[in-house]
Amino acid sequence: MSNKNVYIDYDDCVIHVNDVSKSFGNLHVLRNVDLKLYNGENLVVLGRSGTGKSVLIKLISGLLMPDSGDINVLGQVVNHLDEKALRLLRLKIGFSFQNSALYDSMTVRENLEFPLVRNKRNLTRMEIDREVEEVLEGVGLLQTINQMPSELSGGQRKRIGIARTLILRPDIMLYDEPTAGLDPITCLDINGLINDVQERYKTSSIIITHDLACAKMVGDRMVMLLDGKFERQGTFDEIFATDDVRVKPFYDYNFIV
């Protein structure tokens, strides 16, 4: 775990996933899972591919609805909200997609302006430009402002994707595999950026990953999704202090093989 200058309020739970289950046909992805995210915390969700990690954050952001259970985000039950209330709540949640999901027909500037002009309609042209430039500067990519997403590298796309979510100043960040498909140096950059966002914007975040270096560097707490349930949680060392054959190969592959 890295040495970060953050304050985590363990009395203030910003996300509470309460007894949630989700299936797709006969495939039971999540089985009665419980999870809490505290204010200011970076929570890493570990697990094998296809175990429902991404489904979990799609449930939290209301892109999917649970079959049973409740998801409480910032005091509101996501699965009971109407469309308008859900849209307002989503403005407080930033979602960084695995493949960045940049709008490929728009420039970097237009990608960042898109959520801003639609949700803060009273901003002047000058204010919009200032916001866009400030956020881009924050992720170190101001020079790409007029480029198209197809002209950017994988790491740059990830950073722009994160910048696009930060422009609405969210309280919560959800990162879906932030280091997937990137080289080690770029992974370190992205991990640094996630910590930087936590410190600078005072966000609480859930980071979905199976990259243990990333987990170790950004996570304040970790949970591991095994067979549709969170069976292990704690610090990095606590999670891997086990001989469980479902857990040990994760560590061995990342740090021994």
């Binding site: 997609f97 898109f114 959520p115 639609r118 609405l168």
Partner: peptide, 17 residues
């Protein structure tokens, strides 16, 4: 292609209908 690359989901979570 917007659907495949999650651009529609990205639009939805950023408060655009």
């Amino acid at each position: 292609s917007m659907n495949v690359t999650e651009q529609i989901d990205a639009m939805e979570v950023s408060g655009t209908n």
